[in-house]
Design a protein around this nucleic acid. Sequence first.
DNA 1: CCATTATTTCGATCAAATTGGAAATATGGA
DNA 2: TCCATATTTCCAATTTGATCGAAATAATGG
Lengths: 116, 116
Amino acid sequence: METTAALKALGALAQETRLGIFRRLVQAGPGGLAAGAIGEALDVPAPTLSFHLAQLANAGLVRSRQEGRFVFYSADFDAMNGLVGFLTENCCGGNLCAPQAAACGPTITTRKGTKR
Amino acid sequence: METTAALKALGALAQETRLGIFRRLVQAGPGGLAAGAIGEALDVPAPTLSFHLAQLANAGLVRSRQEGRFVFYSADFDAMNGLVGFLTENCCGGNLCAPQAAACGPTITTRKGTKR
DNA sequence: CCATTATTTCGATCAAATTGGAAATATGGA
DNA sequence: TCCATATTTCCAATTTGATCGAAATAATGG
């Protein structure tokens, strides 16, 4: 992820309502949620919600798809991974995150070096 | 890291000049740089620089210490780690980062342009 | 003290983001 | 077609953010 995209993603998440929306979408999983369901869950008026969803979409953090009368929004996990990668590089200068790698969790090393 | 702190950190980094300042400080390492050196490196007028440094400090991403006539600013790596951890949890719902764990990975994504 | 350098505060101005009501635009069903 | 529901666009008010000159504050050495 390059700087411009990272700036847009950071800006998109740096707002309470949008961060709430995104968290909700992450929680909802790949299927996402209909716009109305998000607005109801977070108690955000439709026009305001639409505005924020557009910002998130423009930043590449969410995707939308029409399904019947509904528009479903879902988190773009790849984009989020890209952002985390960008920050990790900016935090660590391209190397491992300092002291604790807690952020990367108990994890994943799917059996040694099987990258990808 | 709690939501409020994460929002402040995201907001602090979601600005071109501030992101540039922070990257420079990360690159400078724990010792940091004098305010003047940062301003000169990034060509930012003193008042503007002071404003942005204050924002970064308020967000907890940088620390400052007086040294002689200079005020040195340095990146707070723990805070940055905290932010990455927060995003990772919000990206993965507290579990593994989806498909590829590239960000945490075996690393060394020495990409051209990472430097400087 | 005084001069010099480093940084911050003040203040004014301009630009951009956020908000939500009212109205417009889909979409699918009766 | 007409209706009901879902979502977006339009618009205008309000708030918040960014910029930087000028002046103020801090630190040091002469």
